[in-house]
Every structure is written in structure tokens, then in C-alpha cells.
Design a protein around this nucleic acid. Structure first.
Length: 212
DNA sequence: GAGAAGATCTCCT
DNA sequence: GGAGATCTTCTCA
């Protein structure tokens, strides 16, 4: 039986209108839905990181509001998408009430539907490598700045819904990846059993070699 | 207006 | 394991 996108109901605003770490954890195993024309791409969220505000030196919001990080200060349940390293887009979900900055970085998804189109966006890449990193998954789902501030609580081009069935899984936590400050916080969460997370338990990058 | 750093990925050795 | 790519954003003068 195929997964019908319409059967996936977007998570309500209240899901995001709470603590960022709580929301990050709760986003695991939810379904990220991307609509491109008549095609529906769906990925199961398997890895996330929480980013706070003025008390979190690793966060874009640490020094207050800027034009870039504005969505982090806005309504919860919206996309915050930024461009980094001259190459990559990163997808975040805003949390907490208006005026309180917070966002969850989606770091990895497991492709569930629309694999063919994802592979067209990432030609020559093995399945396990399609979306096991923040820059990879935005490319696999054709997510760019045009979707910045998109409302994720509605049926639109991009939203997040509950999984059709709640699987049992074990959540692991670790320091966040790729930052130099705030590494004492264990604000990265991932599904232990998933093959699609970006790093293994010891923090090593998952490379092509390991899968050949 | 200049300079530096960056929530990354890929290729090369 | 390491470095280059590539460009946006922010900070500071």
C-alpha cells in the first residue's frame, strides 16, 4: 500500500510551541513531506539538533536577531533555511513562542517515498548516502531559500506529519556536529538503529567506503 | 567596505 | 585523514 500524502496530517503549531530540546527529540520518526508538482517526497526524520538563543553560543541567535536568523524569533512551526559554506542549504524548524529564538536542525532523513526523484537530484549517489547529512537532504528534496519561512503546519510544499505507525526505536544523544562552542550540550538526537544517520556512535562520518 | 568564519560535502591521497 | 570549493553573513573599522 502506498503512502498517500494527503493522509499525512501536518503537526499542529502547538507541537513546536514548546522547548527546543523537547521538540527536537519529538521530531524523530516524524515524516518530512516535500511536494514537487505531482510528486510527493517523504523522508523519516532520524537525526536532529537543537539550537537555542542567547544562552547557546553555537546558535545563530546567540548575538540577537539579524536579517538571516529572523525566522528563529518568529512563529513556531516555520522553516528556517540558510545557505552555508558557499554550497549547502540547511533546513531548520522554528520552535518556541514569538520573540523566543529556537530552531531544530534536521540533519538526516531516511527516504520513504519518491526515491527516484531524490536520486535524480543526487545522481550517482548510493541510497544510504542520499540524505544522511543536512546539506545532502536539502539537495535530495530540492529545498532552497525559496522555502524559507514556509509554514510547516499546513498542506503546502513542505511540511512535517506524524508517522503512519509509531515504531519502537531507541533515541541516542551526543554533542552537536560541526560546532566549536557549546559542545558540552548533548543536543543532537538520533535514532540508534537507523542506517541513515550522518555519523556513527563514535562520531565518525559515514563514508562511501563503508558501504562498498 | 574589508576580512574572516562558517550548524558541509566531495574528492584526493 | 585532509584540504579545497564557494559565497553568504556578520563584525568591525
Amino acid at each position: 500500500m502506498s503512502i498517500m500524502a494527503k493522509s499525512i496530517e501536518p503537526l499542529p503549531r502547538s507541537f513546536y510551541n514548546r522547548g527546543t530540546v523537547t521538540t527536537a527529540r519529538a521530531l524523530l520518526n516524524k515524516h518530512l513531506v516535500r511536494v514537487i508538482g505531482r510528486t510527493i517526497l517523504i523522508g523519516r526524520i532520524v537525526e536532529v539538533e537543537a539550537y537555542g538563543g542567547r544562552n547557546d553560543p553555537a546558535s545563530h541567535a546567540y548575538r540577537g536577531a539579524t536579517p538571516r536568523n529572523k525566522p528563529m524569533f518568529g512563529e513556531p512551526g516555520h522553516a528556517y533555511i540558510y545557505f552555508t559554506y558557499g554550497n549547502h542549504y540547511c533546513l531548520n524548524v522554528t520552535t518556541q513562542r514569538v520573540g523566543v529564538p529556537g530552531a531544530v536542525l534536521i540533519r538526516a532523513i531516511e527516504p520513504l517515498k519518491g526515491l527516484g526523484m531524490m536520486k535524480r537530484f543526487r545522481p550517482g549517489v548510493p541510497n544510504l548516502q542520499l540524505s544522511n547529512g543536512p546539506g545532502k537532504l536539502t539537495k535530495a528534496l530540492a529545498i532552497d531559500r525559496s522555502l524559507n519561512e514556509a509554514d510547516l503546519t499546513r498542506h503546502g510544499l513542505l511540511y512535517i506529519g506524524k508517522a503512519s505507525s509509531e515504531l519502537l526505536f531507541t533515541t541516542k544523544r551526543s554533542p552537536r556536529i560541526g560546532i566549536t562552542l557549546g559542545i558540552e550540550r548533548l543536543w543532537r538526537f538520533y535514532i540508534e538503529s537507523s542506517q541513515y544517520v550522518s555519523r556513527d556512535v563514535s562520531g565518525n562520518r559515514r563514508t562511501h567506503r563503508q558501504y562498498r
